[in-house]
Design a protein around this nucleic acid. Sequence first.
DNA 1: CGGGATCCGAGAGGATACTG
DNA 2: CAGTATCCTCTCGGATCCCG
Lengths: 128, 128
Amino acid sequence: MAVSEWQPGGEAMCPYRLVLEHVTSKWGVLVLVQLLDRPYRFSELRRAIGEVRPVSEKMLTQTLQTLERDGMLHRDAKPVIPPRVDYSLTDLGREAAEQVRDLALWTQKRMDAVQEAREAYDATKRQG
Amino acid sequence: MAVSEWQPGGEAMCPYRLVLEHVTSKWGVLVLVQLLDRPYRFSELRRAIGEVRPVSEKMLTQTLQTLERDGMLHRDAKPVIPPRVDYSLTDLGREAAEQVRDLALWTQKRMDAVQEAREAYDATKRQG
DNA sequence: CGGGATCCGAGAGGATACTG
DNA sequence: CAGTATCCTCTCGGATCCCG
């Protein structure tokens, strides 16, 4: 299947590309894969992801809202003091998360091949 | 597997995330999937991708260089006038491209579910 | 034809302060 | 605690011009 067989036009005619960008975005990947483990609360999720790479409240909020709107995850806000909000994957989100995780794992597995290619590339670039 | 079990630290300790971002980037996806079809020349590739979404020469060049450096594709520059450069997937690139394509196809297939989720989300947001 | 170099605007993304 | 609002920085990415 060639790209040319896909829906042509701008983003308006290609809505799936936006979803793809959401789930493969910098923070989207980390959120989805983390939630494959179990449901998380907001701050708990922020701390967990922060072990890989610190994420601002703003970007985590934004990422969670985008993925919730796309139906990838469920937001359960309990009306208590202090507030408690739990995030979990929907069935749709789990399907996405598993594929994203697989792609991440593949990338990790083939990282040595990538490193090798980079060194070869950089070497030929330096000497012309 | 939880995110916390991955390599912690910044990008330096998490090199695979950069590769993941390269292959799932806006133009990376389109380039990889297009090349699954067959090898393409530069301008030919630009025209083909342009049917989905116009890409500037700069971004296509940049995307191709990044993916070549990561060992995802092979660049064959023939020393002729006018210049002729063919791009094709390496074995590594084909593995990546197939997974990216599968993820894109899954997204297209589930697009109706996403649309439904979005409408439900927007509806509840409007009325509180 | 296949790029490289430069300039520029728009949006991503971080830091901080504030709120229910 | 779980956000919201604001400001600010910096990168992404497009437009344009140039070269072998």
